[in-house]
Every structure is written in structure tokens, then in C-alpha cells.
Amino acid sequence: MHKNNIGLWQHSHSFGQEQKRSGEKRTLIVVALTLVMMIWEIAAGWSYGSMALLADGLHMGSHATALGIAVFAYAYARKNANSTHFSFGTGKVNALGGFTGAVLLAGFALFMAAESVERFIHPVTISFNAAIFVAIVGLAVNGLSAWILGHDHDHGHSHSPPSSHDHDHNRRAAYFHVLADALTSLLAIFALLAGKYAGWNWMDPAMGILGAVLVTRWAWGLLRDTSAVLLDRQNAILERAIRDTIEIDDEIASDLHVWSIGPGLYAVIVAVVTHHPQPSSHYREKISTAHSSVAHVTVEVQACSSQHDRAHAS
């Protein structure tokens, strides 16, 4: 065969990562909103002598940095989608961005818990009226940001937030960041109102600890899902489904590997043992047709010469 004809048996490994994802534009808008609110809260904190507002402004600054990482991950994955340096494209950059965001979320939760304990020991004076006003505006901005990230413009205008089944880990990490911001603003409003009208100043650090626990739960779930992608964890459900597709009559999948190579995309390597071998394209087409999420399939076909060999292969 002439080398010029080899292209007929080759295909791109970008798997659509060169296309701009909807989450990229949304995250960029949220970064801008977060930066504006961060500057206002820090300025208000200094002006009103409120450490609570100053801390919340710095907290939003850390989230703006995390969201910036998410935007970078989107752009990097798109720019390098066709690079030959990546065996299966840049799909995992999305998971890496989500993992980094989750680590920052966990760090923020630890900081929040430590600061809350410190305020139990050394209470700070809060300018309640100014703090409540800025916290309400912050809650509104974070609510708008969460709506921007969670509102699905591409699939029937659904208003459901990114779930654990959402394959865009970058978008999910960004969504959890603004949700954590909204949660801290909401808890701050509740605590400030309780402190102003009931004199319960201890509510401020108590709400901080509660918020840290909830944020830790979000971070753990995101770390679990993204690390599974980064470490090529076997997808047991899809593996079973592929076995059911392949193992009909005489065929046995003696060796099967299924792993994620991008948001909602999987690669498969399978060795098929049978007494009546078909071309590898036959099995590849069966898998691709039955499972739309499988973007790359490699098949090895081995002829089984006896019942003993077949039993041994199984």
C-alpha cells in the first residue's frame, strides 16, 4: 500500500474539542461579574471598617482566580485540540481545570472554617447596615452568575444546574464556585440580621463553619469525578454494555479497557476471541453503532482453535 493512501484509514483525534463550548463564554461573563463585585466589596470593607466584607471580597478574588483557570482550560483545550502531542486530544484538560477548581474550593472551605473559629475566639465589630446591603448585592450577583452557568441555552432552554452527570467538569467547577459565593452571602445576611436585631454575634462564625462543611461536600464530589477521568478509571457501566454488545454466540471479550478521553467521550481497546473471527472493522462498527459516546475503538481479533483455548481465554 502506498503511504499516500494511509489517510483513508486515519481520523482526527480532536473529538470536537476544537469547537468553542458554551461554558467558556458563560464562565468569562461570570469572571467579569465576580471581579467587579470583588473590587466593590474590598473597597466597602476598607471604607466601613468591616473585616467581614473585606474577607468576603478577598474570597471572591480567590474565586475569580479559580474561574480564570476554568477559562484558560477551555481556551487551551480548543487551541491544542489538533496537536499531535496529545494521544487522544485535549478532552482531559476540561477535567484538569475542574480538578484544580475543586482543590481551590477545598482550600477555601478550610480557610473559612479557620477564620470562623478565630472569630469565635476574637469577635470583630461589624457595621451591620453597610455589610447587609453589600451582602445582598453580592447574593444577587452570585445568583445571576449561577443562573448564567446553570442555564442550558443549548438543550431546550432547561434551567437545571450542572449535575454529577454533566460531563463539562470545568463548567461544573465554576458553577460550584459561584454557588459557594452565593451560599456565603446568604449565610452572611442571615448572621448579620441575627446579630443586628437579636444580638447573636456568634451566628457569624457559626454560619461560616456550616458553609465550610457544605463547600467541602461539593469539592469532594468534584474531586472524585474529575480524578476518575484523570486516572483513567474504568467505566464499569459502559464496560458491561460493550461486553453485552460483543459477546454474542461464540465471541468473548478477553481483554477490555474503557476510559474517558473527554467530556462525554470514551475510548475502547478490546481483544475478541472467537472460533469464527470477523474483520476488526466488524466489531468496531458494532461498538460505535451501539454506543454513541465511544469516540475511539481499537480491536484485536484472535482465532480460537479449540474449546480449551476458548475456556482459557474466558
Rank of each mutant, 00 (worst) to 15 (best):
H2N: 11
N5G: 15
L8D: 10
F15M: 11
K20Q: 12
V30A: 05
L33Q: 07
L35E: 09
M37W: 04
M38D: 06
I39Y: 01
G45K: 13
S50I: 15
L53I: 13
H59N: 09
G61C: 07
A64V: 05
Y74V: 13
A77K: 08
R78I: 01
S83N: 15
S87I: 13
T90G: 03
V93N: 02
N94K: 05
F99Q: 03
G107T: 10
A109H: 11
M112C: 14
M112T: 15
A113L: 06
E115C: 14
F120E: 01
T125K: 05
I132R: 00
I136R: 00
A140F: 08
L144Q: 10
A146S: 10
W147G: 10
S164V: 03
H167F: 11
N170R: 04
F176A: 03
A182L: 04
A182N: 02
I189Q: 08
A191G: 10
A194Y: 07
K196E: 11
A198M: 01
M203T: 04
P205N: 15
P205G: 11
L214E: 10
R217Q: 03
W218Y: 05
G221E: 14
G221I: 15
L223K: 13
S227G: 05
L230Q: 14
R233N: 01
A241P: 04
E247F: 02
G264F: 06
Y266I: 08
A267S: 13
V270N: 07
V272I: 04
V273A: 12
H275Y: 03
S280P: 14
S281P: 06
S281D: 06
E285Q: 04
I287S: 10
E300S: 08
S306M: 05
A311R: 10
A313I: 00
